[in-house]
Design a protein around this nucleic acid. Structure first.
Lengths: 353, 353
DNA sequence: CTGAAAGCGCTTACAG
DNA sequence: CTGAAAGCGCTTACAG
């Protein structure tokens, strides 16, 4: 293994200078830097990261905690985040919390700040406050913070729940639908314990009801309880059909759920969008190739990742300066993808992932 | 931050002893160990990982390189691997190579052995040999090694291409199909550069042809070139239909491709399995909830991850002992999931992820 | 079984 | 702008 000392020797400078040169500090004379970088290249020098991390307190490694990588939403987010960090020469450790509240907390509390410079987390059951209790001052960025919005204590990036759900429902209205069910609203079904905490579910649901009200539609009978999973969505569809399916549209609170609804409706022989139109939320890949393709609120994952990394770097830069700046909440953009599950085959153009 | 020195002081022992006690070395007297662990707990001690890694040469962090986490196959594998490592208190950095040969190599060569104890890689374009040239002695485990099988130079874990494809085709035969197309066989289509290297595609294709021959079916006209992606699968289906669809079954070389085939056939109004039966390979989640559900060779991802970690630990343990043990190749198990795309609604029971 | 000493490879003040 | 010295927090021989 080649060490910095050897590079310095080969370049005829001290280790301190070599170190500064390789890190691109601008106090180093251009000519000196060149000597050093050439020596480093010639010797195939690679910095020893643990040594650097020990001395500097920065490892260049971040952690993302997600409940399940097999879930396309989290996989897409992880993909974008890993790629964005990679662009900046940073690395991402991914941990899977399996929708388990205690596991989330223990994973957070076992992150030593020395190995990991910051935490990105999609918490399913813990508020920012609860996470803050075990994060020991580590920089944290939340995706869809489960706190009530008034007292969030970390920076967060949120999916456009309000705008997106509103757009989906107005689209259903424009398609002529008047009996719109809100699938996966709050409170949850009592079939299984919900995989997600209250806040996000409540947020989207409230907005859905408000939009129905604005449009002069009945919101009193709109709630269709369901957990936000494909498995539950399928069961929910069966229950709906058994109960007579009093809806001509189903606005699902996320895509996983919507995919299960579509499957369940197909099993029951219900035509989509003929008898019922269906919308989702997230914009995960399968919605683009199942039949019928799924109309959905597609979240801008790329800018989600870009903003996340940039907010994290702000936290790192400003650490210890003042007391603590106000936590920021940023809402990402979206596009309403109008596909077959609302407008049918003829109107929806070819559209695939 | 609490250091080992403080724990040692609180427990009334030396740092060396405290270190040994906390790492569970059995040379430490039980009574001493107890004093130390209690002190560590009381002070909320967390070992500084970079310091440990610097001294010991082990970080407890591994890296997985996959081409795309949004692809359900790689997401599923990453999920299993991260979870299995987590069980052993190890961590996983995930890097995304975007199906790019050069990016794969540069990511490998930039792994400093000091920060990462070993590499798991799903290489799409590089053989084990090519990876070996830039891995600088780092332990490596390949998933579906792209080398020709004779001269692999790392341990590898392989999907059950031969057995699985054989089972899928025999199943199609049992369903009465006699004109079976092999979709995604080698050589590739010339529409786009293939996302995957030759070896895996060739492996599965050869086995498909061999099975057709065994069954006395025509293998000469069986090849349907297509890249192994959903997008390409859809286009391939359109081409097939335009050309008159001379098949009553399509055996797809992986699920992503099969999902695209199903979508394309649906767009063309072709009944599955009525006019054509379709099979996939991998067992990713969407195949369980699309309509029709996809008959597929479901790989045992969990044991894939368990074996991967255990083989990696063998490499770590045996490093530097003898010259180099023979690289091992292990083939994981599978189950043939018989679903609607071959047996239709009536025969396939309810089956969802 | 335990402790004192050395040192892993860097970066960080600080002196010049 | 550069270099000599110190030290980040551990673990590893080694002596007892």
């Amino acid at each position: 293994m080649v060490t910095l000392r050897e590079v310095a020797q080969a370049a005829g400078v001290s280790p301190s200078t070599a170190s500064a040169a390789l890190r691109g500090m601008d106090i180093v004379k251009p000519q000196t830097r060149k000597k050093v970088t050439q020596a480093a290249e010639r010797l195939h020098y690679r910095a020893n990261l643990p040594a650097r991390a020990l001395r500097s307190g920065r490892s260049g490694i971040f952690t993302l905690i997600v409940p399940d990588l097999e879930n396309a939403f989290y996989a897409r987010l992880a993909n974008s985040l890993a790629t964005e960090l990679d662009n900046r020469d940073l690395r991402l450790i991914i941990q899977v919390s399996q929708f388990n509240k205690d596991k989330e907390l223990s994973q957070v509390s076992e992150l030593t700040s020395s190995m990991c410079d910051g935490l990105f987390i999609c918490s399913t059951h813990n508020s920012g406050r609860e996470i803050g209790r075990v994060s020991h001052g580590l920089p944290v960025l939340l995706f869809d913070d489960m706190s009530t919005q008034e007292n969030t204590c970390f920076d967060s990036i949120e999916t456009p729940s309000r705008e997106g759900i509103g757009a989906a429902i107005r689209h259903l209205y424009d398609c002529g639908r008047r009996r719109i069910g809100i699938v996966g609203g709050f409170p949850p079904s009592n079939r299984t314990p919900p995989t997600l905490g209250v806040t996000l579910r409540e947020n989207r649901y409230k907005q859905a009801l408000a939009t129905l009200d604005q449009l002069g539609l009945d919101s009193g009978q709109a709630l269709v309880p369901s957990d936000w999973t494909t498995r539950e969505g399928r069961l929910t569809a069966h229950h709906l059909v058994e109960d007579g399916l009093g809806f001509d549209a189903l606005c699902c609170m996320n895509d996983s759920l919507a995919l299960g609804i579509l499957r369940g409706l197909a099993e029951c022989g219900i035509q989509v969008p003929g008898q019922v139109a269906v919308t989702g939320f997230d914009g995960i890949a399968p919605g683009g190739y199942i039949t019928p393709t799924l109309t959905t609120v597609a979240v801008d994952f790329t800018s989600m990742a870009v903003m996340a990394v940039s907010m994290m770097e702000d936290q790192l830069g400003g650490r210890g300066r003042q007391s603590r700046p106000m936590p920021r909440r940023i809402i990402v953009g979206y596009r309403l993808l109008k596909r077959e599950s609302t407008v049918g085959r003829s109107a929806a153009g070819p559209d695939i992932i």
